[in-house]
Design a protein around this nucleic acid. Structure first.
Lengths: 95, 95
DNA sequence: TAATTTGGTTAATTATATTAACTTGTTTAT
DNA sequence: ATAAACAAGTTAATATAATTAACCAAATTA
């Protein structure tokens, strides 16, 4: 059966962001920009959506006088990611 | 590196359709409707898109006097699916 | 023969994603 | 000191995609 895929995670950019976050404590906005090569505005919006859903935490600080945005994943985010991946497997039947 | 995911396949319904097709010769419209529980109109549109992209073949026949639409995947479709899955793996097990 | 069902399609609406323009503050060059 | 360029974003506008609602033609059932 094809389970529904969480629409919040079934988006290339948001999935990349969450994917990066599940394996590291904290990640900078800038780093995400480099890794994904996405436009800053796009990232900004997708971060807001993930935050509103309670999937990630957003922490605003400064580094060398420049603003710096740090992201981390929440428990809810980890769970959502795991269940997304589980459901997805039925679509890509990799066994 | 997060490779781009083919937007044609990165759609829950289209992915389900292609996923079903890669493992069977031919599938009926109706069967897809049952398996995905999606609305017929939605399926109709997504089929058209996959066909226009050359990912699937659409064959219209009759069964018990009723119209019947049969779908099958093309070589191009298989390749696109395989490369989609390959790229996707980097997103879902990021070690 | 009037409703209902099958198997869809098309048009209209809604939701999403992407880009373009803007903002605030910093650093560098003049 | 100030203008120009850069960093790190945000917001508003636009383009794209997905979903639903309405429709169609033919077949079946009441």
């Amino acid at each position: 059966m094809y389970e529904d895929l969480d629409p919040l995670l079934h988006s290339q950019l948001r999935l990349a962001i969450v994917s990066m976050l599940v394996t590291s404590e904290k990640i900078e906005f800038t780093h995400i920009k480099e890794e994904t090569r996405a436009a800053a505005g796009n990232i900004s919006i997708q971060i807001k959506k993930l935050q509103e859903a309670g999937y990630i935490n957003v922490e605003k600080t400064f580094k060398n006088n420049y603003p710096k945005t740090l992201l981390s994943i929440t428990d809810k985010g980890v769970k959502a990611f795991e269940s997304y991946v589980n459901n997805l497997k039925k679509y890509i039947h990799p066994e």
